[in-house]
Nucleic acid binder design. Structure first.
Lengths: 148, 148
DNA sequence: TATTGTTATACTCTATAACTATA
DNA sequence: TATAGTTATAGAGTATAACAATA
C-alpha cells in the first residue's frame, strides 16, 4: 500500500507535462518557431550574441545541430550571423529586431504561463512546492550520476 | 512581487521534467527502445493486441507514423503483426515473449521511478500534490480549449 | 462509400565523421 | 596542434496525400 498512489501520482505528473508541452508548442508555433529554434532564440536573447559553440554547450547539443537550427532561424528572419570581432573562425548569433520582438513575447508568455499554473497558490504553498521540486531534482541528479 | 517566484518555480519544474526525461530515455535505451517505440509497446502490453488504428488514436499520432513505429518494433523483435480474426484489412499488434518481458521491466521501472520521486512523501503530502496537479491539469486543459 | 494500412514525399531534430579556415 | 563551423551522411519521429484492399 502506498505504491499505487505514488504510481498514480507519477501518471498524473506525466499528463501535466504532456499538457504543458502541448500548450508551449502551440505558443511557439503561433510565433513561427519550433521548440528547438525557440530555445536557441531564448538563449541568444537572454545572454546576448553567442558563438555557436557556446550555444551547443548551453543546449547540450552537437555543433552540427546548432548549424542547422541557426540556418533555419536566419532563413526565417529571427537572427543573423555576425562576425566575431576578434576570432575570424567564430560567428555571433544575434537576434534581429523581429527576433527581439518575438523573444519579448516569449518572456511575456513565460510569465503568463507561470501565472496560469501557480497564480492562485499561497506563499506557503509556493515554498512547499519549490522545496519539493528541489528535493526531487537532487534525487534525480543522484540517480543519473549513479548510472551514467 | 510574487510573479518572479512563480516564474522561478516554473523554471524549476522545467528542470525537473528535463531530468525525468533524461532518466527515462536512458532506461528505455538500455532496453533497446526509443521513447516512441516504448510508448507503443507500453500500450499494446497494457491493453492487449491493438489495431494500428487504435494505436494511432491512443498515441494521438498519424496512421503513417504508427506504421513506421510498428515496423521498427517488428524488426527488433518486440512485437508481431497478427491477422485480425474478423477484419482482413486490420492487423493486431501483439507483443512477442521478448516484448512481454521488456514491458514487465518497464512496469517495474515505473514503480521504481514513482518511489524515487515520491517515496518519502507522507500521505497528506501525496494528497496535496495530487490535488495540486489535478487543478493544474484542469487549468491547462481549459487554456488549450480556449485557443485550439 | 468508408475504413485500414501502405507507399511516396517531406520536414525537424538529432548524431558522428571528415574537412576548411583560423588560432 | 587545437578550435569554430561546415559539408556529408544517417537515423528517428512526425506530417499530408494518394492508393490498395477490404468492409
Amino acid at each position: 500500500m502506498g505504491v499505487d498512489e505514488r504510481e498514480a501520482l507519477l501518471d498524473r505528473l506525466f499528463a501535466v507535462t504532456a499538457l504543458m508541452n502541448e500548450d508551449m508548442d502551440r505558443g511557439m508555433r503561433s510565433l513561427g518557431l519550433t521548440p528547438a529554434r525557440a530555445h536557441v532564440l531564448w538563449v541568444v536573447s537572454a545572454r546576448g550574441p553567442c558563438t555557436q559553440r557556446a550555444l551547443a554547450e548551453e543546449l547540450s547539443v552537437s555543433a552540427r545541430n546548432v548549424t542547422g537550427l541557426v540556418d533555419a532561424l536566419v532563413d526565417t528572419g529571427f537572427v543573423t550571423r555576425e562576425s566575431h570581432p576578434s576570432d575570424r573562425r567564430a560567428t555571433l548569433v544575434t537576434p534581429t529586431p523581429r527576433g527581439r520582438r518575438t523573444a519579448d513575447r516569449m518572456v511575456r508568455e513565460h510569465r503568463r504561463f507561470a501565472q496560469l499554473l501557480f497564480g492562485d497558490l499561497s506563499e506557503s504553498q509556493l515554498r512547499a512546492l519549490g522545496s519539493g521540486l528541489e528535493q526531487v531534482s537532487e534525487r534525480l541528479t543522484g540517480a543519473l550520476r549513479g548510472r551514467p
